[in-house]
Design a binder for these strands. Structure first.
Lengths: 155, 155
DNA sequence: TATTGTTATACTCTATAACTATA
DNA sequence: TATAGTTATAGAGTATAACAATA
């Protein structure tokens, strides 16, 4: 049984909000699948990318990524088991862990950049460099407020 | 020349793929919250919008929205309980249900359009009409393939 | 007493598969 | 036998909250 009015459909499904949400979800899914090829969930990658910038505490990850402390524990357990990161006690405050990336973790960051780059080339194959810059600029001007989910947060 | 740490951050977090995924997720979340004000999940709204175009079978919803038959049942149970839609047997094939929207359901579609419109005005407040058209055009040229999730599909 | 991190539990969402009734 | 829809169950993913250790 087919819908009779295609015009109405255009009204409702062409809404820019829906378009952004939908194509964003597709981009997200593609990235997710690419990460999975590396054996990483999205959060694992997000944590790893942050660790790439220097040692940090778990609390910092909780705040920055906007995810639950118990999730950080679980992700770090995985990363540590895979020898991509390691935890050690902070001598200045023995409650804290200093989380560091390993050399294997650094190599994995390169892999992440490669696979995400490949996804991007696929997604944006029909846009030239100028259009990509334009899209980036327009997306950056979409209003997101302070309480929006940081990258790596659940959906 | 930027310090090395900041350059790396820009490399990784400014990736257009991440930007699209992230801002799309925010748009999605806002829409979701707006729907929730009406007591509707995203799927409820998606189903309702499709019903607005005329009576359809449950099978059609399964195929169009890409969601599981059992989920369609559950969503329709909710919609029926709220008197937004109703099911009746198809006399031509008594296995099928013909699903119709009610007048209350039609009114709810108006509400959906209102709240989503409000979300869009918020998200896109810093863009003028021409820029919105440009953004729409660029988003439409992002490559999505046949097996990408239809709207209403799980994430 | 407050904070950091951990563990254990419960809950939500979804897919899977078995089932009923029609064809 | 195949199809439309329904129901029941199990699994993944997540939040919640209790807990241990430091401060």
């Amino acid at each position: 049984m087919m819908p009779k009015e295609a015009a109405q459909e255009a009204d409702q499904l062409d809404r820019l909000g829906f378009l952004l949400a939908r194509h964003g979800a597709i981009a997200n899914l593609r990235i997710q699948q690419a990460m999975a090829q590396l054996g990483l969930g999205q959060r694992h990658s997000a944590v790893l990318l942050h660790l790439g910038q220097g040692p940090i505490s778990q609390q910092y990850l909780v705040e920055t990524l906007g995810i639950d402390p118990s999730l950080v524990v679980s992700v770090l357990n995985d990363l540590e088991r895979a020898e991509l990161a390691l935890r050690r006690r902070d001598p200045d405050d023995r409650r804290r862990h200093i989380v560091e990336i390993t050399s294997r973790g650094l190599a994995t960051i390169d892999s992440i950049n490669n696979v995400v780059g490949a996804v991007e080339r696929e997604l944006f194959a029909d846009l030239d460099a100028g259009e990509l810059e334009l899209l980036r600029e327009l997306l950056n001007r979409v209003r997101i407020s302070a309480d929006d989910p940081p990258c790596g947060a659940p959906e």
